[in-house]
């Protein structure tokens, strides 16, 4: 029995294992090997063992700084917009409308982020919102090709990824807990802080992590809505691999990105845990 069970487990895990090996570990290994190599005369990779590429990483400091500024900011902005929306969908909407509104949240995902970002070019461009603002005397407002535009694009593009985990967490939330809180003397706003918010934290954490990790690798939105002036690590990678064809340096930057991501996600998880622990203290107040 134990034999067959472990064999069954092995069988079940084999596809995922192979997938990870082929799609994650192998490329990662290649990137690691490349990162210690040298750029060949005409670009691309030349075998070697040097730390030169890593020593050169400060040359992309600005890209890391931009990414590490706008990714958390974008995550936070998405969260601040997604939470009320998810709350509304999960708690306030009647079941009849719920499905329709949920579909509306997903619908933008049916078209490519590229197309949608192009729509924002029009909206934020001179003939879009700025023209509208000009009618109210706010002349010459520049929105497109600014970090703000990138933030707008990010929030827009990633909102559903944030909404759904939070929605699921809020949907699961037993409404009787709120009645219990009210019954025990808690006004609604305090019940939100003491019951709803803490219990939806898993959704908030999942959504934030999802958005943050994807944002760290983002390059399309900054290049489209940032007018090429907002430079993420993702843009640095595209340039290094496809334009200057400096694969070893590109690989080192990629490894750097993975490390930065591991560190920030690690810090985030720890902070989240601490918040989780603090939550009970808050509840004791």
């Amino acid at each position: 029995m134990a034999m067959t069970r472990s064999r069954a487990r092995a069988l079940l895990l084999t596809p995922a294992g192979l997938w990870y090996a082929a799609m994650l570990l192998l490329p990662l290994a290649v990137v690691l090997i490349f990162s210690f190599g040298e750029r060949s005369q005409i670009g691309g990779y030349a075998p070697g063992f040097t730390l030169e590429q890593y020593a050169n990483l400060p040359a992309r400091f600005a890209a890391f700084r931009n990414t590490l500024t706008l990714a958390p900011l974008g995550t936070l902005a998405s969260l601040l917009i997604a939470y009320p929306l998810a709350y509304y969908l999960a708690v306030k909407v009647t079941p009849k409308w719920k499905t329709m509104l949920l579909v509306l949240v997903i619908v933008p995902f049916w078209t490519s982020i590229l197309i949608r970002s192009y729509a924002w070019i029009f909206l934020l461009g001179g003939k879009g919102i700025p023209a509208f603002l000009a009618m109210f005397g706010l002349e010459d407002v520049r929105l497109l090709n600014t970090p703000f535009a990138v933030l707008v694009g990010i929030v827009y593009g990633y909102l559903p990824l944030m909404v759904f985990p939070i929605y699921v967490a809020l949907e699961k939330l037993d409404k009787r807990l709120l009645e219990a809180a009210a019954d025990l003397g808690t006004p609604p706003w305090r019940a939100f802080l003491q019951i709803t918010l803490p219990l939806s934290m898993p959704g908030v954490l999942t959504g934030s992590m999802l958005v943050f990790i994807l944002l760290m690798g983002e390059f399309l939105i900054p290049s489209i809505l940032g007018g090429g002036k907002v430079f993420f690590v993702g843009n640095a990678l595209v340039d290094l691999f496809l334009q200057s064809r400096n694969w070893p340096f590109g690989s080192a930057v990629a490894v750097g990105l993975v490390l930065v991501m591991l560190v920030t996600v690690g810090l985030y998880t720890r902070a989240a845990k601490r918040f989780g622990a603090g939550r009970d203290d808050a509840a004791l107040m």
């Binding site: 750029r39 005369q41 005409i42 670009g43 040359a59 992309r60 600005a62 890209a63 931009n66 090429g228 002036k229 430079f231 843009n235 640095a236 340039d239 290094l240 334009q243 200057s244 400096n246």
Partner: peptide, 16 residues
């Protein structure tokens, strides 16, 4: 096309 310095210059310009 292959000069790494021009590529780096471009990167510094874009990320400045």
């Amino acid at each position: 096309l292959t000069d790494p310095n021009r590529a780096e210059l471009m990167a510094r310009f874009k990320s400045a």
